[in-house]
Structures are given as structure tokens and as C-alpha cells.
Design a protein around this nucleic acid. Sequence first.
DNA 1: AGCTGCCTTTGCAAAAATGCAAAGATGGGA
DNA 2: TCCCATCTTTGCATTTTTGCAAAGGCAGCT
Lengths: 297, 297
Amino acid sequence: MGRGMGISALDWNDIPLLLALARAGSMSSAARDLGVDVSTISRRVAAVEAAMGTRLFIRSNRGYEPTDAGTVFIAHAERALGEVQALQAETRAEGEGISGRVRLTAVNVLFDHWLLDHLPALLQCHPKLDLQLLTDNSNLSFTRREADFALRLAQPTQDAAILMRKVGDIGFAVFGAGAHAQVLPERWSEQPWLSYGEELDGLPEMRWLSELGIARRILRVSNVTTLARACEQGLGLALLPCIVGSRQGLKQLGAPVVTRELWLLSHRDASRIKRFRAVSDWLAELFEREAAALRGT
Amino acid sequence: MGRGMGISALDWNDIPLLLALARAGSMSSAARDLGVDVSTISRRVAAVEAAMGTRLFIRSNRGYEPTDAGTVFIAHAERALGEVQALQAETRAEGEGISGRVRLTAVNVLFDHWLLDHLPALLQCHPKLDLQLLTDNSNLSFTRREADFALRLAQPTQDAAILMRKVGDIGFAVFGAGAHAQVLPERWSEQPWLSYGEELDGLPEMRWLSELGIARRILRVSNVTTLARACEQGLGLALLPCIVGSRQGLKQLGAPVVTRELWLLSHRDASRIKRFRAVSDWLAELFEREAAALRGT
DNA sequence: AGCTGCCTTTGCAAAAATGCAAAGATGGGA
DNA sequence: TCCCATCTTTGCATTTTTGCAAAGGCAGCT
């Protein structure tokens, strides 16, 4: 260690410096090779000799020649250099192994209210990943490889080229805020409700709402974030993913009443690619760990 | 190398720093252990991660944990540390092996006009030696170990405890200066002469002078340095060791006319002691290399 | 004797690193 | 909810290192 480690401590940076000096045979050559001033080399050689308590080089008009002790130093320095070169190469290789672009598509609610909280851990392990989160919409084709991974809230239709696995369930529960934060289940149907537009009537959440037989639907919106914000304003009740409610000023009014399956899609050949395998494994672990939080139980 | 080696070059001093951090498990512990500020550690860890192009540690409220790449780094760093520790220990041991007091006695002329020119080479090889040059005089007892080595200009009397070896010859020639710098040998006996006092009549030089049958002895002195200085002043001719004349404003007037043997004395058991053996070997090499210069041929 | 090429040392300015103090973020535990 | 222990970052002062320029010494060569 250099400074802060005592006057006589060896500065490790001087090890390659003295090696270079021994190889160059003269201080002016070594100075050129290393791009440092000759007075700097003179000072640092003197500092190393002070730290070692012995002369390492004989100076002459013909340049530098190592003493016996200098020869011992240089032999060890060469081995240390080899070790440090291996350290750098293998450390970089280990870190660079997982790098490149990975595109993940999912509904925004998964990104905004859940996955983003866990990405720092992934990116700390694999800082070279170039992760792209693509909000799912009807124009995006997974079959045409416009994404590398997809998270779907229903079992997709079978496709030989696509690997599909169920990774968990996402639970939906009734949420309210303000004056609607204490409504009992038997009074739910009498309350004002917030929901999606008619184009999403096919969703399990919308079918559940229809079966409830609600009296008043006071607001229709097009995405879950807006739905959650409206509910937070106390405008009425809403059926929301449990992961949303656990993050905002919302009150979950009861156990989940709808559950949807979560499926992870990837291209079958992706497992050959290191970064895809790493992300796939990480996601599988994450879903396993977070299963209860996703279900809302 | 640290500075001057590019922004992304690894600073070798950070290798033991990161090792210490891994061992301590937290930055505050490592800061205490190393005696450096936590902000310094934070900066340097970041610098190493930049140099490596990958994260090496995961930071949490529980402290630092290495990533996979960090684990690779640490494994190599431990081997590098072992190498550098061996480098320091063995370099110091090699340099410290020849140290301690060595006392050498000889006539002053050998010191002043020859040996002192060569001592820097010895002390560069063995900077820890404590070399003492003791001018020989009748009060100094080699037998009583008042010196470790002695240089004598004649074969000493035999002594079982003392190792004696002839290491060369020293030549004496006629010298003059000024008006006496061109005197031919057949005119020598007519010239004014400088010599030692009667108490040194037994010396080979004095006997030679007596056989020459000189007409005028104008000055008697007690040591060779004074004799050389008087000759240099042009006062007369003198018989001097060749090594004296080659260094001052004196002219050697012919080939050496007297030769004395040089003997090196040491105590028989001294060869067991490393520093004595090193000096003895060095002197033997020196005499071999300088044989012609000592003879004056 | 003079020149050349090397090394040593040094004062001083510039650059870089470090320490200090402080503010803020975060997650776990009470 | 609050507290605690950890890490991160930053501005600024201090310390250390380095670069530059210059002067000097020394040995070999011409």
C-alpha cells in the first residue's frame, strides 16, 4: 500500500517500475518506456531501496545493473507481475461473461410496481448487461423476436419455437382509499366503482366485476396505473393487482378475489446464450422468492 | 503503476486494499484496519471496478460481499500478496546477509593511493558493511585480533591461527618532477635524493638506494606521502611505489627497480563468517584484476 | 582537454490523492 | 414509526507525488 501505510512500506506500484528499469537497463530508457520523469524514477528506486534496507541496483555511466539482492527482487517481481496480469484478465473475463442486450417485455404494472425494485440486484451481479424493458402492446411480436423474454398474464398459445413456463400467480384484490377504505365485502356492490374500458371486458378482473353486479361505474380508464391513482384519490373501489396496493396509499379490503397465472416466454434456442440463461435463471429465482408477495397472501 | 499509466490502469496498491476489504467484510472495518478514511476506500474500490470493467462487491447495509468476479479477483490477490511478501522477505535477507564490522589494516600508501578508489564498488554491493581502515603501526596486534584483515609488504612469520596468502607484488620506481623529470638512469647517482630516516634502513627500498651509491641525500622523511609530496616539489629524486606516482604530478623515470610481495592476513576461523568471506573474496579478485597496476608494468 | 551520455539532486509549481466533515440513502431491528 | 449501522457522495483543505528545469558529477571516448 502506498500512503497511509508507513514511511518504509513498499509501494506496490514500484514493483513493475523496478522490473521495467531492470529490463530497460538504463533510467532514461525506462523513463521513456514508462512515460514518467527520470527524477521520479530516481526517487522511487531510492524509496524502494530504503524500504528493502539494501541496494538493489548499481548505478554507472553504462546504466543500471541489479545487485544480488536486486536480482532476487526482480525474480519475485516477475512472478508478481504474472499474477497481477492473470488477476486482471480473469477478473475481466468473469465480469464480462454476462453482457449484451436483453429485451424483456411485460405489462407496465409488473415493471413499475414490482420488477424495478429488484433490478438493482441483477445489474449489480451483471453490470455489463444492457437490459431493455419494453411495455407490452398489441404491436409487439414475440414470435418475430422483437423481445427476448416476455411476461404474460395468461397461458400463451403453443408455439414450437417458444419456451413457456409458468412462474407464479398474480393476485387481484379490492382496494379503496379515504371514505372507501373500510367498506365490508357485503356492501361492495353498492359502492361507486372504477374500471377499465369495454375493450378489456374479456379480462378476468372485468368478468369478476360483472359477476359482482355493481350498481355504479363512475370511471373507466385504460391502464392499471391510472386506475390505481384514481382509487387512491378516493373516487371509488377498484380491483387491482395486490402488488400495486402494497406500494401506495391504498387499503386492501380483503383477500385476493382473482388470480392470474404468470408465464415467462423465451425463445427455445436462447439457453445457449450465456446472458439469456443468466437472466432466465435470475427471473425464476425471483419469482420463487416473491411468490407470496405476487399472490397477495 | 498508479499515475502516469492511464486512467483505467490498475493501481497495484489497491490489490492489498481490496483483499483487506474482503477480509474485513465491511468498509468501516477495513478503514480502521488499514488506517485510511472510508471515503478513500469508497473511491478506490470504485476505481478498481472501473479498471476491471465489472463490479467486484455488492454493497448492502450488512457490508461488502464479493461478486463472482470479485471472488476471482480476491483469489488472485491472495496469491499476489504471498508473492510480494516473499519478495520483501527474500530481498531483505539477501541484502542483509553481508553486514557488520570489518577492520582492515595496511600501510597508508595502500589506502590513500589505491584501495580507496575501489571501495565504492565494494560498498555498493554490500551497503550494510561497517568497514574500518586502520593505519598499520607497531602498536597494532593482528594476533590479538585488533584487526580482521591485514595487508603486509613482506611475508609474515608463520602463525598457526593466521591464514596468510600472497596476493600480488607492489613495484617501486625512481620518480622526479620539474628539472629532475628527465634524468637518465646513468646520471641518477649524481642527483640530490630524498629518502626515509635511518630507522627504516632495513627496507628493500633503502637497501637499493644504498647500493646505488648516491652522492647527496638532501632530505629524510618518515612516511611515503610526505616523500611523494617533497619529490613533487622538485627537490630531488625519490624511490616510490608505482601506485603513488601514477596519481600525482610525478614522472616515473624508468621501469620498477624494487618489487615487494603483498600478503593478505586473516584469522583462520574467519571464513565461517559471511562478511569476512565476502571481503576476502572481493580483495582477492581486486588484487588479481589490478596486478599490473600494482607492479607498475 | 573537451565532449558526450549517463545518473543525482533539488527547488518549485502543478497535479493527484487523501482526510475531514457533513448530508443523504437504505434496510434491518426494536 | 423510529433508531441504528452501514454505504455514497461531495466540497474543500491538506498532504503527497510528480514534472520540469537546472546544476553538477563522473567515466569513457576522441
